[in-house]
Design a protein around this nucleic acid. Structure first.
Lengths: 194, 194
DNA sequence: TCGTGGATTTACCAAATGGTAAAAATTTTG
DNA sequence: CAAAATTTTTACCATTTGGTAAATCCACGA
């Protein structure tokens, strides 16, 4: 069905801006150009729309981390991961904010997925990074906190866009300078001097 | 009035967990142990409660940055600032999430305050850091993005607590390891060796 | 052309929500 | 103690919200 995608896209706009409880079916319907009952013809209810979005998002969201290759050059792999996450914050800000809003409220609906999907991948990649550190290929850092820092700094440009725009004067070009800054920061973090 | 503070505390709980539109006066009333009309005796309406919280929060929120001293030792000043922000994320997670939720939704209510309060302070402290960089006292980095990174990494532990708890196994002690990691990261970021 | 199945709309509904009016209770003050 | 001021409760109300029932529209094949 084409309308299913139209609805999900409209719902992504509304949910990402107002949060789950703040979004209304009427808003989603208006945004989708459909009537409310028509939306409920395609989805069982408000919660199912939200859950569908989050589930679909999870795969996209984890993909950059999946690509982190244990056999690649450590520093390149991590810096490329940073770049992919930053690109995603630029290209998919609605998805970033949808996810952020859900976590901010304690992950009431996506909680199970965090355990079943995110956690195993996180542990696996932490092990990879820990291996690199132990082998002396990168600095001896905490893989967990390194990944947190990568998530935090990259998603910040999407999730806190309103604040960033105020402070940087709204002009474009923020992406490239951010990329340069983050590459520098995480590059230094991985070096093995002391 | 003592009840004003009781209401604000209850509202902080509810708003920080459900966002503005997701919170209800009934919830706030129940949390405060008062009746809904009694709450509206102390505040003009839902929006005023939210606005009062955000306004009060702004001062607390900016305080760590205000303390950053242009005449102190650059590296110490910045690392101490990181520490203060991290401590705030631990001690005031509700405030952090309230603020995050507001920015996430495009700062519809606190927008003006960002321009009038945050922006001038931000520009001033960026100038201080830029001065340190120009004088060769720290690495030549972008003050703006450095501050963004500090905010993002420290607030992450409050705003994404649900996710952090899943991934670290909920056990305590996250604060100290996070502190160590961030001091290391920003410490390296500021060093002047190429 | 008729009917059949999916898609859409119209007309609702019960519950929740922000808010109000006014009475009642309580505290303060003269 | 009595009156005045403040605080709290009771009883509502209009609107919004998620959701439903049933009628209607619309292709499309027999």
């Amino acid at each position: 069905m084409r309308n299913r995608r139209v609805i999900l896209d409209a719902a992504l706009n509304v949910f990402s801006q107002y949060g789950y409880r703040g979004a209304t079916l009427d808003q989603i319907a208006a945004e989708a150009g459909l009537s409310k009952p028509n939306i409920l013809y395609y989805f069982q209810g408000k919660e199912q729309i939200h859950l569908t979005l989050l589930s679909q998002l999870m795969e996209t969201w984890l993909d950059p981390l999946v690509e982190l290759d244990a056999d690649g050059d450590p520093k390149t792999e991590i810096l490329d991961y940073v770049q992919r996450k930053l690109d995603m914050a630029r290209d998919l800000p609605r998805e970033s904010r949808l996810f952020a809003g859900e976590i901010l409220q304690g992950a009431p609906r996506i909680g199970p997925n965090l355990h079943s999907e995110l956690k195993p991948l996180f542990d696996q990649k932490c092990a990879v990074i820990a291996g690199w550190a132990k082998a002396g290929k990168i600095a001896d850092i905490s893989p967990q906190h390194l990944i947190f820092s990568i998530w935090a700094t990259t998603q910040h440009y999407a999730d806190f866009e309103a604040q960033v725009n105020v402070l940087l004067g709204d002009g474009l070009g923020s992406h490239d300078t951010a990329s340069q800054h983050l590459r520098e920061m995480f590059g230094r973090m991985l070096c093995i001097n002391t």
